[in-house]
Every structure is written in C-alpha cells, then in structure tokens.
Design a binder for these strands. Structure first.
Lengths: 264, 264
DNA sequence: CGGCATTTTGACAATCGTCAATCAGTGTGG
DNA sequence: CCACACTGATTGACGATTGTCAAAATGCCG
C-alpha cells in the first residue's frame, strides 16, 4: 500500500522527488506494535518522534476514577511529538488501538529534515497545525453538539482524513475501534454509543460492522453533522487561485463560514 | 504593570537581558481594542501575529444554530497565530471579551525573532505547546468531568496561568467574564453555570462577584477539580535535575499515572 | 429615574449515564 | 464437533445531570 506519510505531507507542501525519496527512506523500517500497547505515558520524558504508518493509535488521559478521554486518533501518516523535546514530560499518554506499524525517528533525523528539507519542514509544521484544528473541532463537538451529530462529525472527519492517505474504498473504511473506544473519544458511555449508532443506522446514515464503517450517503451525513472540512486544511494554500482550486479527495463539502450556506 | 509577555516567556526559556530588551521593544506600542470585538474571523486569511498584553480574549467557533463554543481563553502574555501563515484561512475566530491591549507583530518581526533570538524562539515554541496542552485538558474536562469539577478546573487553570504573569493578588484575580461567556467555554447553558457557581460558593470553594474570582481555599479547589498543573509546563525543563528519579516503575493496569499528585 | 445587560429562580423536559442482564461472535481445548 | 471462556454488542429499567422556557430580581450607567 502507498506510503501514507508521504501521501499526507503532499497536502502540506509541494514536495520534490528528492523529498519523497528521503521520506521513503526514513519510513522504510517500521516496527510492529500490538493492539492496546502504550507507546509513551503521561509523566515520562518524550523520547523519539513517532510516526504511525499502519493502524490506529490515540492520545489519551486518564482521570482518577479510571475514566479515559481520548484526545485524538492517530491514523496512518500521523506524526506525534514532533517538537515535544522542548517539554520535560508528557502531559498525556499515547497508545495503540489496533496493531500498528510505527516508525521511530531519532532527534538527529528530525534535525536533518529541518536543516536540509525545507519543504518537508513546512509540511511537518502544517501537520501540527492540522492536528490543532482537529482538536479544536473535537472540543466544539463536545461542548455544543449532541451525541448523534458529534459521532456523525467524527465519522466525516475520519472519512476525510483517511481518504487523504488512501485508506478509503468508495464509501467505506476500516475503523478498528470498539464501541467503548468510540465512547472514550466522544465523551459518551458505552451504552449510549450503542444506541446512537443504531439511530444513525436506522436513519440510513452509516453502518458499522466488523470494524468497517460504511457511509450510506456522504452528503447527508455531512449535512447532518454540519461538517465543514476547512479545519483539515487539505486545500493547499499555494493552490488557492483567484479561481477556486479543484477540490481534492472525498467530497469535501460542508458549511461555508462566510455565507452560512451548505455546499454540495 | 510588568510586561506579561516577558513574564510568560521566562517560563519557556532562559532569557538574556538582550532578549528581554527586544521583547520590551516589540511590545512597546500596543493598541486598544474594545470589548467583544472580533480580531479575526473564521474563513479569513491570517494576517499578523497577535499578542494580548492586557485583558481577556478568546478563540471560538459558531455553529449554525448560533451556539458558540469558546476553544480557549487568551490572557495577558498569550500569543496567537504564531505560525499560522502556513495555512490559507482561519478555521476559527478570535475576539476580545473585555477591553484589551493588543500588539500586532508583522511577519518580518517574527522572522527576525526566529533568526536572531534563539531563546525567544524556543520560548515561543514552548508557548504553542502549552496552548496545545491547555486545549487537550479542556477536551478531557468536556468529555469526562461533570460541570462543577469542570468549572473548578478552569478556575484552577486561570489562577495558575494568570499567576505566571503576575495577574493574581493573593487568592483572587480579575475575571472579566459574564456567566454566559463562562458557559460558552465550559459547554454549559447559562442557567446551569449560574447554579454550579452557587454550588461552588455554598461549598466554600470560590466566590465570583463583580468580575473578581476569589478562591476560598486553593488546595481544596484543586483537589476537588483533580487539578494537576503539569500540562501548563511551568516547571522549566532545564531546571529539572539531570538525573531523573527512577519513575520507570511499571504502571499496573488501569492505574492513573498521576497518582499522588494532589495536596490536601 | 429609566433602560439595559446580567443574574437568579422555578418548573419541566430531554439527554445521557448507570446497573444488570442477555445475546452474539470467536477462539481453545478436549 | 461441542463445551467453555472471553470479549464485544445489545437491551431494559431507572436515575442523574443538564437544557429550555419564562419570569423576576439585581446591578450598572447615563
């Protein structure tokens, strides 16, 4: 399967062949990590920069009563702790959800990228800004969206993010999460996740079986979720012309912040 | 009053006198902005880097039904859009809450800092990482903390952040928010904010009157909120002993890694 | 004093969580 | 092939938290 890291960074900068070669070289040797293993825990000093090549991982925090809040999913192509060497200790944990392929980048490798590969450096920066945007959108959902729309919004987001790294087939993608893990991300109880999921299925929006999420009608799901992909910043800034850039990848529609109207 | 920007960055790097002089120069001319004015709106291209010197501002998003979610407060010393020039358009809005003093930094000024002031550059980076940590903590609160603890946690956070820039007197600080604005940040309705506030007061934890938040008992409030300031990264990494205490004890299933963090 | 924003209250409803079973799928060992 | 165990999904009953609506009280400012 194509290299998701390269595929992702293509959205953040106009890479050269040399850039791609370097990225390919860096990601050549990945290690396998089993499901539900901690990659790094809160309180530990951050060590290496990590790259998820295959599988699902997440950032999370635990509360005293054992409740877990997942603060973000990491999917193929995602990077973590890029510049976190500045901080003395992790303020959250990172763990795999499914089995994963992970690449560890030494600080010197990252340093080399920063010094000799300006376009890659730019793309890495772009990627951290996207991560920030994603977290902001999750926060909005938690605060102001009811459970069903919140879940629909997450599905739209994953559809778009996974589409950007070639992990979407038609209108379906692999989503290796249990309902409990979905709940930990959405701030919902397991029981409620189950019920909302059934409601979405009954409304003909999605079906989620055997770790595969199938979107029945993308446009309707996006509209229901009030999904606007702008926060994923997949329309490249340098492609913005006075004339609209052609949209890339899975139908990226949603609410237009200026007009307040929905676009197809 | 002391320069909050310098005070803040002191926490992120070991500044020299020259660094401080430069920061003083940069922040010398601030402009006044009235309360509840937008500084930049979602969908607009980011222009300049902004610095809040005095007053409260916030990042927010609006939903279609008019609901607002505040994704972060910006207090004296906070910076926004540091590197956002990479992105084509804002994915959220920024507005003042109270009247503010704001500094606009041109891209070239930021560039100069980046090229000639490595310690300031480091501190700016640190600051973006802290912002990220704060957002993550808000997300955890929204997902897994009930309203009263969530609010208490926010008060602890502001107490600490404002304390770090010299805006706290004893056990009280100015908090120029209406209850509605508090609700927009906490994801609560105005009515519920009011009731929770009363409950906290009746429990002898805080009082909030005339835009001043008074913390009756800091330790008890922190304990109630399960507040751990680690995510604000105020203990400077370079102050940490070179040898770390052997905290590599394996964490047994499901235990919170932050055990023993609370003070009575 | 009037006008306006903000806070406060009460009554009621909706969303969502908890508890406790039950059901379904999968893998293992005999 | 089946009993068994285990994880994950599903259901029902019930309760707690939080939202909505509508009104009244309070505080602030010219």
């Amino acid at each position: 399967m194509s290299n998701p890291f390269i595929a992702k960074l293509e959205h953040g900068a106009h890479l050269s062949d040399d850039d791609r070669r370097k990225l390919q070289e860096i990601t050549a040797r990945a290690r396998r990590v089993g499901p539900r293993e901690d990659l790094i825990m809160e309180g530990e000093p951050p060590d290496e920069v990590r790259l998820v090549i295959e599988g699902f991982a997440c950032r999370y925090k635990l509360l005293r009563d054992g409740a877990r809040q997942i603060c973000g999913y990491m999917v193929p192509g995602d990077i973590c702790n890029l510049h976190v060497a500045i901080l003395g200790e992790m303020d959250h944990s990172i763990a795999t959800i499914s089995a994963c392929s992970v690449v560890d980048l030494t600080p010197s490798t990252v340093e080399e990228l920063r010094e000799r590969y300006p376009r890659i450096t730019r793309a890495l920066w772009w990627s951290t800004l996207v991560d920030e945007g994603v977290m902001r959108e999750w926060l909005v959902g938690m605060g102001r969206r009811p459970a069903d729309r919140r879940m629909a919004h997450l599905f739209c987001e994953l559809f778009t993010r996974l589409g950007a790294v070639g992990r979407v087939e038609r209108d379906a993608f692999e989503l290796p999460l249990t309902q409990a893990e979905l709940g930990d991300a959405l701030g919902l109880s397991l029981v409620h996740v189950n019920r909302v999921l059934q409601a979405l299925r009954d409304d003909g929006l999605v079906s989620f079986r055997r770790r595969v999420l199938q979107i029945t009608d993308v446009g309707r799901l996006q509209s229901f979720a009030e999904f606007n992909a702008n926060y994923l910043h997949l329309t490249k800034a340098w492609d913005r012309a006075p004339l609209r850039a052609p949209r890339s990848l899975p139908n990226v529609g949603g609410l237009n912040p200026r007009s307040g109207e929905f676009e197809a």
